[in-house]
Design a protein around this nucleic acid. Structure first.
Lengths: 153, 153
DNA sequence: GTAATTTACATAGTGCGCTATTTAATAACC
DNA sequence: GGTTATTAAATAGCGCACTATGTAAATTAC
């Protein structure tokens, strides 16, 4: 019954935790976010807040749905997060005159200034990954390709 | 001042969202967990619950900290999750006689039986990723290597 | 011009995942 | 044997990230 045994071994490894790409992704994401939590402590930002700030440092005056598109996040996630950034006086939120359904998110002076401190973060992260820049870029590109596949189902 | 401009462009891309490995990881993890949410709906499991079940299908009768080690998760995360699995009658939890600080988590018959239905999940996931098995294994191995680096800081 | 539909955001509720702390049990030390 | 330190799990509180739903504004259809 070698055939059955092969199937058994195959099935065993199909459900084994270590085989799972999903678990590698999940566990590495947790480790990455732990590293960022440490680095972002002095900026007084959480990791998702930092991602939002990255978006706004790149392009100010975005709507909630504009930020949502960039980060693949729902307004149910973004609205409370942006309110906390507003409370920290890093952004301001206001309904646009053109379309009152839309909320425009803009950087405050304090929010813009925080960019200077944030500059050190990617350097520190790169050191922590122990990877070269080409390796990081290759891995990032593979992940982005994987995401596009996953999103097209 | 081309040198300054080079530095400026360098700094621009260092904080650009698309440059960030962290964001690729974060966004891909969100997409992966969305895919699993769809597939796991009929098993009535959340994604983290599924990961716990994977661990127990591989090795039954683990302590909370044993599961925590496998998944890199704290007891503050696991205890409520395991209570929900217990409520769904997939596991049972009991203090061990040898050391009453420890809680042993065991599969119920229902929990063991769920494994059969779970077998289809990795196959469906692999189809969704659009990657070959060697590609998946290579990406998984790179992520695991990255995690080890991140954890050693 | 009005009604129906769609859109953008907000809210409610749930399930994590974390830090900090508490509780109870075990181990180490004197 | 008693005290102190450590360990395992649980609890509290907070910040997401999601689904579902509600509210208000804009667009579309008639």
């Amino acid at each position: 019954m070698t055939d059955d045994n092969d199937n058994l071994d195959h099935d065993e490894s199909m459900l084994a935790l270590e085989s799972q790409l999903c678990f590698a992704l999940y566990a590495t994401q947790l480790s990455m976010s732990k590293l960022y939590r440490r680095l972002l402590k002095r900026l007084e930002l959480t990791y998702p807040q930092y991602l939002v700030m990255l978006v706004l440092w790149e392009e100010d005056h975005l709507t909630v749905s504009g930020i949502g598109e960039r980060l693949s996040l729902d307004s149910a996630t973004l609205t409370p997060l942006l309110k906390r950034l507003e409370g920290a006086e890093l952004v301001r939120r206001a309904r646009t005159r053109e379309d009152e359904r839309q909320v425009e998110v803009s950087l405050t002076d304090k929010g813009s200034a925080l960019r200077e401190q944030a500059r050190a973060v990617p350097v520190e992260v790169q050191q922590a990954t122990g990877c070269s820049r080409p390796e990081i870029q290759a891995l990032r590109d593979q992940l982005n390709a994987l995401k596009r596949h996953l999103d097209n189902i």
